[in-house]
Design a protein around this nucleic acid. Structure first.
Lengths: 234, 234
DNA sequence: TCACCGATAATGTCTAGACAAAATATCCGT
DNA sequence: ACGGATATTTTGTCTAGACATTATCGGTGA
């Protein structure tokens, strides 16, 4: 942390975040910074490279390095395990398994539209309810590809939620999230809210080495959950 | 792209993403990779450093470098300018300014709860509607701190949406997003949907050098917009 | 005036070392 | 068998150069 390159990095970052160097401004050349800090160019280069990686700086050969002009807001959103969220709130957590079936993908209506599961793949279909402090917190519908996660066939999901189980057993390498709003509709009874109540719907596709592992659709009552994305550019 | 360090990087990344090196596995030491690629250690080190920055690898002195075990899902979500979103869809875009008032923060009900605006700050309050292809797309309520963005007082927001204007004029350095679901409620008329329709509500606080710049609450009809977060670990 | 083309200045990559720091492994004495 | 000092391995940082690459700038000729 107190290495020279991280000092240079935070110096530069400070000038940018304070607004002293506004977006589009040209920052000193590596040569100038070398003279200023009395170090090797590699050290300066490393510091700038780190800021390029975070999107704070853009480099153009011959022209120089410039403070990036942010154009899209990219926020990092953390989607933790539900059990962990509830535990962090200090509430009691329980998972209720509502349905568990097993079958080939072709027989399931959702399958063809979802995720790129191969037709005929054996999947586990799990419906469940996450309960926090006695109140329904999230209704979950999940498909698990048994080709990618054969051990899931023997797992006991009445104790551990499938999400938590998968996290520990089948490491994924890629995921895609879709966040939408919907009315509670047919899930209203289970969630014990009105059918017209607004809910946050998070859909997540998860792959491992380009093979689908699981698809999950989670429905949260709008007043019980929100997603917060902290952010720094860019 | 075809530099040696990026080749080493993608070799390593391939082994990890393919599952050949599972989470927790130890990867070859830098010394071994140097022997394997016949290059300087700096080159190998740079490649690994890049993967550490993305969270794919963890390094421990003496012990070695290991494939990271993902524990929370962190997704990167892009929140682009609304005008740009609609343009990308190939639809006509229009912004309608519904209300524009100016006043000190203390007089506004929302102010004290919002964002850390200082009491007494002069703010611009803007309500507007984003229209895509003739249909309401997003209802927006915004506060702009005139201390942070004095030029906003003179800007003409009946042409350019304040979000787009701010993006070009007042670079922010920090932002926080909150994503919830809500019913259309009082916004239903403007959005031309039912009062009970589910909407995605995005709230965004934006700072520049630790000074609040703007707060915005955007309400999207749930069936017209969703957020997609692509993801790679960790 | 305009198109081209070469000089130049900046970043991009890489080398072959050096020393530092930290965590594990080993050995030794009790 | 255990605890603690010591050795070793591995990553962390840095140097002082080298040559490659490329966008810009300025000049030259049509």
């Amino acid at each position: 942390m107190s290495s020279l390159d991280s000092r240079i990095r935070s110096d530069l970052e400070g000038k940018i975040r304070s607004g002293e160097w506004p977006p589009g401004a040209r920052i000193p050349t590596e040569h100038e910074l070398v003279a200023q800090y009395g170090c090797a160019r590699m050290t300066v280069h490393k510091a700038i490279t780190a800021l390029v990686a975070t999107g704070l700086i853009e480099r153009r050969k011959k022209a120089g390095s410039f403070v990036a002009r942010p154009h899209v807001q990219t926020a990092v959103i953390e989607i933790p395990d539900i059990a962990a969220v509830i535990a962090a709130r200090g509430e009691a957590y329980r998972f209720e398994l509502l349905r568990r079936t097993r079958g080939a993908v072709a027989t399931l209506d959702e399958a063809s539209t979802l995720a790129g599961f191969d037709l005929g793949d054996e999947v586990l279909v799990l419906d469940g309810l996450h309960v926090a402090a006695g109140r329904p917190f999230c209704l979950e519908h999940r498909l698990i590809d048994l080709a990618a996660a054969p051990e899931a066939a023997a797992a006991d999901f009445s104790v551990t939620a499938p999400g938590s189980w998968l996290l520990g057993h089948i490491p994924w390498t890629q995921a895609r999230h879709r966040i939408t709003a919907c009315n509670a509709g047919s899930g209203a009874e289970r969630l014990r809210i009105g059918r017209t109540a607004a809910c946050l719907q998070v859909e997540r596709w998860t792959w491992r080495a380009n093979q689908p592992v699981t698809f999950v659709r989670q429905i949260f009552p709008g007043d019980r959950y929100d997603l917060v994305a902290e952010f720094t550019p860019g």
